[in-house]
Design a binder for these strands. Structure first.
Length: 590
RNA sequence: GGGGGUGUAGCUCAGUUGGUUAGAGCGCUGGCCUGUCACGCCAGAGGCCGCGGGUUCGAGUCCCGUCACUCCCGCCA
């Protein structure tokens, strides 16, 4: 007999009755009746009830062993009597009569309760992550993640993609987020960077003549965390394809993503994934990652307020402001409207005007100043009914869109208008190539400097830079940005020109992107790709509100690994070897 | 860097308008219990109420500061 186990804790059923077996695992729960004690033994696979009574030699030690101790139990599988069958357990028709009980590893008093469905505090969970991960839901989430990644690999290979590995120690690149740097021992004063994504490598893979690449790629960005953004590192399904247009990328990716969501979730994934131009998304949803489950849209009512009796808005419009209207279904009460107004103030806006529609008339100060006719125009445009409200964001276009967008989400949530049983996907397309920095007025790349401008060189030469669109797209699901991609700019002259518009001369391109700009001189295939976030996909499928729930050993919000105690101090000798010296930590002012 | 929320037993949380000895469930220790499966019953241990200061006759509760965790803004090609 194997020294640890002949079966797992899920394997024993009525078929095994009469067999002498050995199982090992953790004591999940104990029910001590004095002369009779039950143990639920748990392993990765399931639970098996084991039982001993006072006549058994091991009875005392069974009673005395604490929860979560690891034990090996040897004994006979016995059928439970009819009245003691537990139908909620797959192994509930049998139990193991304990003949021998060996403690492999005794557990101290636990810092968190493993057999509870209730989460402990984040700090405790992360510090004792190995205990947290024994619990049902975290354990299942990690298994789900593994299965999803497995499925993605199979689907990608089926579609003719090949998985390659790209370097982890690479060069810092000027664009994007803050880099993690690694001092280069052999090159005093120089640093490697961890890749923010294998962006340049995957393009070079295409130049190398491989046709369809993918990788479950680790990406490193030194950015502050959010609920849907793990600090430091995350994984992307990174992929790139040669000789493709935008729609080819969509056609390759859509079945993979849809397939995975449909395989692992019961939620409806929609018939077709809509394409929404960036500008339309900003107008209707106030952001570039719309939650299409919210059943109403924002509309522009600037013209109705222009030169109107509502002078605050009218004056702002003259100065370039716009007015965006957010419908508030069933929000037609003073209390709700006031709450929205103070919410908006909390968001940094001066407030939110509103009109309440009820009993056939428009009410509130805005309606009064505007007059019944214009209030009715708004009602018709927005599609409001009796009992609804309409809220207004008046500001310069970006700020108005943003506030209206946040208000839309808040109303959707507060009024319970979000259908939790569906995934609503959308491709956001036609991103602008350039944008103007509000503070400096400088024109810069709005998304990815390697994207091909729509219209190519011609567009760069002839058009107002701010009007040029890029072959740049995002995949969005339920208000979460799942993915970002582009058809790349593989033409050196077009690349120089694009960087020139953004204020960088040819030398900058040559210095900062030597690999790409050189490679493109030796025959580069037109290519494009995308990189869906693995963690976010798993988070959506697992229906978890926080990305840490689908990561084995996540860091906390301050990018610390509480379990491993990282980051940590290092010896001076290690620093000396790396030619690195500590700078004094600046004292806090005040 | 900024804003919100939270911080009370090992864990999850309650704690009234400021008022006597700060509670519950789980866990832990001891006792009872031979059919439980969130077993039950009895008893017990366990608290710098995050920390520091202030107001007050009196602070878990009010005020100021600070720290930690968390959510959001900034940031995220």
């Amino acid at each position: 007999m194997h020294i640890y186990r002949t079966h797992t804790c899920a394997a024993l059923t009525e078929a095994a009755v009469g067999e002498k077996v050995r199982i090992s695992g953790w004591i999940n729960r104990k029910r001590d009746h004095g002369q009779l004690v039950f143990i639920d033994l748990r392993d990765h696979y399931g639970l098996t009830q084991c039982v001993a009574d006072s006549s058994d030699a091991s009875f005392a030690i069974v009673e005395a062993t604490r929860l979560e101790s690891v034990v090996t139990i040897t004994g006979e599988v016995v059928r439970r009597s009819e009245d003691t069958i537990n139908t909620s357990l797959p192994t509930g028709h049998i139990e193991v009569r304990i003949e021998n009980f060996e403690v492999q590893s005794a557990a101290d008093t636990l810092p968190l309760q493993v057999n509870s469905d209730e989460d402990s505090g984040e700090e405790t969970r992360l510090r004792y992550r190995y205990l947290d991960l024994r619990r049902g839901r975290p354990h299942a989430n990690i298994m789900l993640r593994a299965q999803i990644i497995q499925s993605i690999r199979a689907r990608m290979v089926d579609q003719g993609f090949t998985e390659f590995q790209t370097p982890i120690l690479t060069a810092s690149s000027p664009e994007g987020a803050r880099d993690f740097l690694v001092p280069a021992r052999l090159h005093p004063g120089k640093f490697y960077a961890l890749p923010q994504a294998p962006q340049q490598f995957k393009q070079l893979i295409m130049v190398s003549g491989f046709d369809r690449y993918f990788q479950i790629a680790p990406c490193f960005r030194d950015e502050d965390s959010r609920a849907d953004r793990s600090p430091g590192e995350f994984y992307q399904l990174d992929l790139e394809m040669s000789f493709v247009e935008q729609q080819d990328v969509f056609d390759a990716v859509e079945p993979v993503i849809r397939g995975v969501f449909e395989e692992f979730s019961d939620k409806d994934c929609g018939k077709e994934w809509v394409h929404i131009p960036f500008a339309e998304s900003m107008l209707k949803y106030g952001n570039d990652k719309p939650d299409l489950r919210i059943p109403f849209e924002i509309s522009d009512v600037t013209d109705i307020f222009r030169d109107s009796g509502f002078s605050i808005f009218a004056k702002n419009i003259e100065k370039g402001a716009v007015v965006r209207a957010v419908p508030g279904p069933k929000c037609g009460s003073r209390a709700i409207a006031d709450r929205m107004n103070s919410w908006a103030q909390g968001e940094g806006a001066p407030g939110m005007g509103y009109i309440i529609y009820g009993e056939g008339e428009a009410r509130g100060p805005v309606a009064k100043a505007l007059g019944a006719e214009k209030a009715e125009d708004i009602r018709l445009q927005v599609g409001a009914e009796d009992g609804d409200a309409v809220f207004f964001a008046c500001a310069e276009p970006d700020a108005a869109a943003s506030l209206a967008g946040r208000a839309r989400v808040k109303i959707g949530q507060d009024q319970n208008l979000i259908d939790e049983r569906v995934f609503r996907f959308a491709w956001i397309v036609d991103f602008p190539m350039f944008e103007k920095d509000e503070v400096t007025g400088k024109i810069d790349f709005s998304h990815n400097p390697f994207s091909m401008p729509q219209g190519g060189m011609q567009a760069l030469q002839d058009m107002d830079p701010l009007d040029i669109k890029a072959w740049q797209y995002d995949l969005v699901c339920n208000g979460v940005e799942l993915s970002s991609g582009a058809i790349r700019n593989h033409l050196p002259e077009v690349m120089y020109k694009a960087f020139e518009i953004a204020g960088y001369d040819n030398k900058v391109v040559d210095d900062k992107f030597p690999a790409m700009i050189n490679a493109f001189r030796f025959g580069a295939p037109p290519h494009g790709g995308i990189a869906p976030g693995i963690d976010r996909m798993v988070m959506l499928i697992a229906d978890e509100p926080n990305i840490r729930e689908v990561i084995l050993f996540p860091m906390n919000g301050k990018a610390e690994d509480l379990m491993m105690a990282a980051p940590s101090d290092v010896d001076d000798s290690a620093l000396n070897e790396l030619h690195v010296r500590r700078a004094p930590v600046p004292k806090k002012s005040g």
